[in-house]
């Protein structure tokens, strides 16, 4: 169940420029839940400006890993290629907001005229969703590397069991005590056993 839109005026048109479909989906879902119903995701960077002009958004959100950010800067320029100049939602008075959005890895551009109090909730939501995505990705990475470590340790245990006639528990204890003595991770010791056994084959 989506909440009521925060204001009675029609929902501002929001474009999300992000090559990551998962992150964009997380953000879009958050915006929809908060009552911002007009959200378009642009994934394809070709002809970015003409797509944006066709959509004619009030707000553009772009991730900072995207080189196309520089293309958006062109929208501030008065020229024939640019229909209506866009101002960026950063002014000197809002240092905390800028800091938080750069930290989260996102930047917002708003079309001249949209009131500041209307952009603030959008940006805040965007920052928190970007941070949530980063945390998720971080956890995923850690889970992945833990799984990798587990595989390496299992193989190293196998080698020790075979070469030294140890039980599985004894092999693990040997790995762990070596790691403690050398102030290294068990995964690192296991990896060096694998490397050594490759070399000695």
């Amino acid at each position: 169940m989506g909440a009521e839109p925060p204001v009675k005026e029609p929902s501002p048109k929001i474009v999300i420029v992000d090559e990551s479909p998962i992150r964009a989906a997380i953000l879009e879902e958050g915006l929809l839940e908060a009552g911002f119903t007009a959200v378009v995701h642009i994934r394809e960077m070709q002809s970015l400006l003409s797509r944006i002009y066709a959509i004619d958004p009030d707000v553009i959100l772009i991730d900072l890993e995207n080189p196309s950010r520089d293309i958006l800067e062109q929208m501030f320029q008065v020229s024939r290629a640019v229909r209506r100049p866009i101002a960026m939602f950063v002014d000197q008075s809002d240092a905390a907001s800028i800091q938080a959005s750069v930290d989260a890895g996102v930047s917002a551009y708003i079309v001249d005229g949209l009131k500041k109090e209307r952009i603030k909730p959008i940006l805040d939501l965007c920052i928190s969703r970007f941070n949530a995505f980063a945390k998720l990705q971080d956890e995923l990475e850690r889970a992945k590397s833990a799984l990798e470590d587990r595989k390496v340790i299992d193989r190293a245990k196998g080698i020790l069991m075979k070469l030294k006639g140890l039980t599985e528990d004894e092999a693990y204890v040997l790995l762990r005590s070596t790691a403690m003595r050398e102030k290294k991770k068990i995964g690192e010791i296991a990896q060096s056993i694998l490397t050594a056994s490759e070399l000695l084959k």
Partner: peptide
């Protein structure tokens, strides 16, 4: 960095 906008902004805010 991947964009001049990023370099400018991160210099501006002290990153």
């Amino acid at each position: 960095e991947v964009s001049w906008s990023n370099v400018r902004d991160k210099l501006n805010i002290g990153h």
